[in-house]
Structure formats: structure tokens, C-alpha cells
């Protein structure tokens, strides 16, 4: 990434911090905005937030790892989320996940080396009738079996 864009992003984050710094319990809000700006929360961004908010960076990191919505690594072009909620799980989501992992060669929470896919295991997506369910971006795939996986991935 060009340095100019990076500087602009930090400037934008600084504005967010300046706005929210003095309101109590605003760390998470700042972190959410930071993730919107940068796409993820690398150590430089966490340090920047910690300095700006006057908290130890370990606290920022603690929040970032506590909530699954935060990512410590850059997200791929497409985010593949597979539901491991109760309904999907009993309908065989684990086997689908295993197949995805072997097709992409990554584990949950990771991004493929070519930056195309990020794989997330999620809780209920709210469409248990379609179990097991996975989503890629906004697209929903229902009643997936392991052998569907290569075909689905090929579309992206």
C-alpha cells in the first residue's frame, strides 16, 4: 500500500479518536471504525489506537481477540463464513468445513496465500431451514454437501 494512502488512513483514524476519546467505553467503537478504515487491525493500528486512547496496547489486543468481529489479519477478497450453529452442525457442517479447509489449504480465521478467500466459522446465520449453510460475501448457499465445495469455490 502506498504510504500516502496509509497516512490518510491514520489521519482518518486520528479524527475518530479525537471525536470519541473522552466518552467512556468508546474503545470498541474506535476499534470498529479502525477496522472499517484498514480492513483489519494490524499491530501498528492497535498501537496507534492505544496511544490515542491512553490505554495499554495489550488492552486493545485483548478486546480485538475477545470479539470475533475483529480481525488481526487482512481479509481476503471474499469472506467465506460457514455456520457451525446447532442446526447446521447436526446437518453435517463439520464435514463441509473440513472439505473447505482442505480445498483452500487454510484453517478457520485465516486467509489464503493468494488473498482470495478468508475462512470464518460462525454461529447461527438465521436460516436454519437451509442447514448446513455457508455464505460468501452476501451470497447464501444452503443444504451444502462436501462435494459441492469445489464447484462453489470455482465461482469466485
Amino acid at each position: 500500500m502506498a504510504e500516502c494512502c496509509q497516512n490518510e488512513k491514520f489521519a482518518e483514524l486520528q479524527q475518530v479518536i479525537d471525536q470519541l476519546k473522552d466518552s467512556q467505553g468508546s474503545l470498541m467503537q474506535v476499534m470498529q471504525k479502525a477496522q472499517d478504515i484498514f480492513g483489519y487491525l494490524p499491530i501498528e493500528v492497535q498501537n496507534f489506537i492505544a496511544d490515542g486512547m491512553g490505554v495499554p496496547v495489550t488492552e486493545v489486543y485483548g478486546v480485538a481477540t475477545f470479539y470475533s468481529q475483529f480481525s488481526l489479519e487482512p481479509k481476503g477478497e471474499h469472506t467465506l463464513s460457514i455456520c457451525l450453529g446447532t442446526a447446521c452442525y447436526v446437518k453435517g457442517a463439520q464435514a463441509v468445513l473440513d472439505r473447505i479447509k482442505s480445498e483452500l489449504g487454510i484453517t478457520e480465521g485465516k486467509t489464503t496465500a493468494d488473498g482470495r478467500f478468508t475462512l470464518l466459522a460462525t454461529r447461527c446465520l438465521g436460516c436454519c431451514g437451509l442447514a448446513p449453510v455457508l455464505t460468501i460475501g452476501e451470497e447464501v448457499y444452503g443444504r451444502v454437501v462436501p462435494d459441492d465445495v469445489p464447484g462453489i469455490l470455482a465461482k469466485y
Partner: peptide, 28 residues
């Protein structure tokens, strides 16, 4: 964690992750 930050203003230890995975450790 409290000693490292509140007393010493260093803050290299923190609580990470959640549930059984919770650790008190440095970051990353």
C-alpha cells in the same frame, strides 16, 4: 496485568481471547 500497567505504566501483559482460551500474556 494491573501491576504491569497501573503501577509500572508498562502494560506488556493483558488478557487475550475468551472462555477456556483466555490467557494472560503479551500480545500477538
Amino acid at each position: 496485568v494491573a501491576t504491569c500497567y497501573n503501577v509500572q505504566n508498562v502494560g506488556v501483559l493483558g488478557a487475550t481471547e475468551r472462555g477456556f482460551k483466555t490467557h494472560v500474556e503479551p500480545l500477538f
